[in-house]
Design a protein around this nucleic acid. Structure first.
Lengths: 194, 194
DNA sequence: CCTACCGATCGGTAGG
DNA sequence: CCTACCGATCGGTAGG
């Protein structure tokens, strides 16, 4: 019988292994030789699949930014009220985070190691996400649902609580991603609703 | 006239400059030569004041842990109700954070670069702080002031919001440390109070 | 606080 | 995917 389940490509193996190691030891603490050793090949061989170490960081950070931005755009395009939108945004955020623990960690913490224009581009994407999220709070205010708060401040505080999930979430822990989202939404709404 | 204002010791200059550079470029991205250059001395000269690069990290992380633990112990020793205690704990936390921006950043993010038993010791101190903080939530519950929530979960979420302050606080920004504390306390209490 | 230096390791390339 | 190697840089020491 033919083998139907195809192996992940070497390139994607490199990304998976790299993100795991970067999460544990930091971007600068993870050498190309470390990554190669984990895949049982020589460091030089990595360059047949990627062109530099920063490639790994770049593709991971921008790939995750894309996931988050696509999800929030979907929420903001739908005709729901702000309370419903907030719940959806939180659920999406926590889902993406828990489905991609290692690359999310890289996205949240290691983007600082990007260099030059890529770093600037990345910051722009992150700011865009924050603004899309803040849009929900502004909607809630104009809909008369939410209190008049400093929306920038509130958004950053909310996102910090969400991002912290990646630090302590364990797939086999007591709370499922949906339970976490529910509790967080509840907590956030209690601070926002009139 | 004699010069009355004494210069900070070389050792403390090393710590100040190091924390600033580590915040900007990470622990592994900051070399002894970088630090020396900022002080306009040679790398070898640093070793007259400190015995290793990890010394800087170690003293900073444990020094900050001490500040946070002393502050929370003071709050928990006083005979106030949980709502008052929470406000005090938040104010102390934000004050320590904003008064020591760079070393707080190192405390929050770079402790991962500690090695061996020092890393284990550090984690124990951090856990102790989390538990002391959680104690306030438990008090509030038994006093009948706070809702019955998952206290561990709530504590981590609250601390994440507080720690995020170090990412965006600017001494000349729109909000003072006390205003930040007030808003955060308000936000947190709305999620906890019955 | 400096000069001079150590062995180790880094990201990456040439050439097969 | 490998061998062999490059120049650069690392934390740290000896000795003054």
């Amino acid at each position: 019988m033919p083998e139907l389940k195809t192996e992940p490509s070497r390139k994607s193996q490199i990304f998976t292994v790299s993100c795991e190691m970067i999460r544990n030891n930091g971007y600068q603490g993870t050498s190309m030789r470390d990554i190669a050793a984990a895949l049982q090949i020589e460091a030089a061989s990595l360059y047949n699949h990627i062109s530099s170490k920063e490639d790994i960081l770049r593709e991971t950070c921008f790939g995750m930014a894309d996931k988050f931005l696509t999800a929030i755009a979907e929420v903001n395009d739908i005709y729901f009220n702000a309370e419903e939108k907030l719940g959806m945004a939180v659920r999406n955020h926590v889902r993406i985070l828990t489905e991609n623990m290692d690359s999310s960690w890289v996205f949240i913490h290691e983007w600082r190691n990007l260099t030059g224009s890529k770093k600037i581009e990345f910051i722009a994407l992150r700011d865009r996400y924050e603004n899309e999220f803040m849009q929900i709070l502004e909607n809630g205010e104009s809909e008369g649902l939410f209190n008049d708060v400093n929306n920038k401040f509130a958004t950053l505080t909310i996102l910090s609580s969400l991002n912290w999930v990646v630090e302590w979430y364990r797939p086999n822990g007591a709370m499922s991603p949906n339970q976490i989202s529910e509790k967080l939404t509840e907590f956030i709404l209690s601070g926002l609703k009139k």
